[in-house]
Design a binder for these strands. Structure first.
Length: 499
RNA sequence: GCGCCGCUAGCUCAAUUGGCAGAGCAACUGACUCUUAAUCAGUAGGUUGAAGGUUCGAUUCCUUCGCGGCGCACCA
């Protein structure tokens, strides 16, 4: 089939037609044309451009549909009107070709808004056919719904399903909303390294890569946290970064190996201040993206307009299981988890078990926006101890919606001696087999030793917010090019690819 | 990583207990100057995801592998 198209390209060139010209001046798009269409009928010719999505030849006349970013319009080509030579070129066009047309607005006998074509120009000859999808009266025939192909060939998905674009527009509005919100409050957007000699700032396994000139292993960042805190040391008081982070873990409808995270750091504030800000910011940004502060998600009406619940983790677990996790014997917690079908790692301490118990018994029930506060200190190595229970709990919160985490925040630990001790605890866990434990970062400690103001820090997963704002059930629906395994037999770059 | 399900023409899907791989659309040729899932006549299109096995014979049964979906685990 591609061979036939190649031959058409050759024939077009023989006819003196450049199948790939440089530009086309259009006077409007289809949306603009259709707006007040009847006033334009039989008026001045207009020029539009787009992709041919339907062609209905009728002998010496051809009807077609042209699709651009704004929508579709029917085209009517008449041999008498465009001439013999142009009609011959028209007959070499295929579904999917991109053309520019000049025509006069008219309505057909059945009333459809149509452009009566006076002249047209081929703007791009396509070699590869589009799936043929037809529709009538809002009913679609042979819809292109292969999910795998949809993600691998997103461009085809976008051509065939222009409405899919709305999700990505909502995502863009969300990010713009977050950015505007922080900018208006004096936060400065910065960019910090993605390639790092040492990774940190979150509990996760990293991707590794290699720097040839330095002949050293590098990691792709798993969080933005540590460099941003160095900026607090340097005197920036309100900074944020919206960027890609990478975690070498499983993929599913909530996880992609690379995802977008917003982190902000706010000097002289604590996690309670951050909670107020996050609540207001998330409400504003999702409302901007979704057009409402109540969003339908996973069968629930999520109300972002109402005040977000604020509950401590310990209190929630007590409420759902009757167990006081701070006083219950560790063996009892372990037994409870095993009974719940959770595999408990050998190195697990009370803190890990509290978190696991929370994930098991409480997390799925948090449908409406809820700030879960005051996590175990042991699982929060970068957070300050809680002012009321400094040896057991951290000043930390996570935002949960529909049973999933959307954000994480703490009163940032700025006591360098305590921070070093926490890193050493993490190192011990790593020895014991916890490969997500954080690595001691001497550079970072040196910065903290130089003095970091008290501050609140927040991390928010943008992709999940985008899912919430657009009603998308899978993270792949809010990523234009979600990560996929390469197709069999399709080449991947080899490791010696130094340029 | 584990479990279940799927993979047939460019697209959407058929194929009886294991018995000649088919249809619609798209494509190609021809007819048709207000059609709209245009219509009509004709043509071509396939290593049935890959490899192996059982069998006279495999799209169908078995094994392994690849890719995907869903669920679980890990995590955001």
């Amino acid at each position: 089939m591609i061979e036939i198209r190649r031959q058409k390209v050759a024939r077009l060139r023989e006819l003196g037609v450049n199948p790939y010209p440089y530009s086309f001046r259009r006077t409007m798009n289809t949306a603009g044309l259709l707006d007040g269409f009847d006033a334009r009928i039989d008026g001045d010719p207009v020029a539009v451009a787009g992709r041919l999505m339907a062609i209905r030849p009728m002998g010496k006349a051809v009807f077609a549909h042209l699709q651009d970013e704004g929508g579709r319009i029917q085209l009517y080509f008449k041999k008498d009107e465009i001439g013999e030579a142009a009609f011959a070129i028209l007959e070499l066009l295929d579904l999917g070709d991109i053309v520019g047309v000049v025509g006069v607005p008219m309505r057909t006998r059945t009333g459809e808004a149509t452009l009566s074509v006076r002249s047209f120009q081929l703007l791009c000859k396509t070699l590869r056919p589009l799936p043929s999808v037809k529709e009538k009266d809002g009913q679609t025939f042979d819809a292109w719904e292969d999910v795998e192909a949809r993600y691998r060939r997103r461009y085809v998905d976008l051509i065939l399903h222009p409405e899919r674009r709305r999700v990505f527009e909502a995502r863009a509005r969300l990010i713009t909303g977050l950015r505007r919100y922080l900018d208006e409050r004096g936060f400065l957007e910065v960019e910090t390294p993605v390639l790092q000699a040492i990774y940190g700032g979150a509990m996760a396994r990293p991707f590794t890569t290699h720097h040839n000139a330095l002949d050293m292993r590098l990691f792709l960042r798993i969080a933005e946290e540590l460099p941003l805190k160095k900026l607090l040391v340097g005197g920036f008081e309100r900074v944020y970064e919206i960027g890609r982070v990478f975690r070498n873990e499983g993929m599913d409808r909530n996880h992609n190996p690379e995802f977008t995270m917003l982190e902000f750091y706010w000097a002289y504030a604590d996690y309670r201040d951050a909670m107020d800000l996050v609540e207001d910011m998330v409400r504003a940004a999702v409302t901007a993206a979704a057009g409402s502060n109540v969003v339908e998600y996973n069968g629930h009406a999520i109300d972002l307009g109402a005040p977000f619940a604020r509950r401590s983790m310990v209190e929630l677990i007590q409420e759902h299981t009757g167990v006081d996790v701070l006083t219950a014997p560790v063996d009892g917690l372990r037994a409870l988890l095993i009974k719940g079908g959770v595999t408990v790692a050998k190195f697990a301490e009370r803190g890990h078990m509290i978190e696991a118990l929370f994930d098991l018994a409480v997390c799925p029930k948090l449908v409406q926006p809820t700030f879960v506060t005051d996590h175990p200190l042991a699982i929060s190595p970068l957070a300050k101890g809680h002012r009321d229970r400094p040896t057991e709990l951290a000043e930390r919160f996570e935002l949960f919606i529909d049973g999933r985490e959307f954000g994480n925040s703490f009163s940032e630990l700025n006591d360098p001696i305590d921070q070093r001790r926490r890193f050493e605890d993490q190192a011990r866990l790593r020895e014991a087999g916890d490969d997500e434990a954080q690595v001691l970062d001497e550079d970072f400690l040196e910065a903290i030793e130089t003095g970091m103001p008290p501050a609140a820090g927040v991390g928010i997963g943008i992709d999940r917010l985008a899912m919430l704002a657009s009603g998308a059930p899978s993270i792949r629906d809010v990523l234009l090019f979600p990560h996929m395994r390469p197709e069999e037999g399709r080449a991947t770059s080899d490791e010696s690819g130094d340029a």
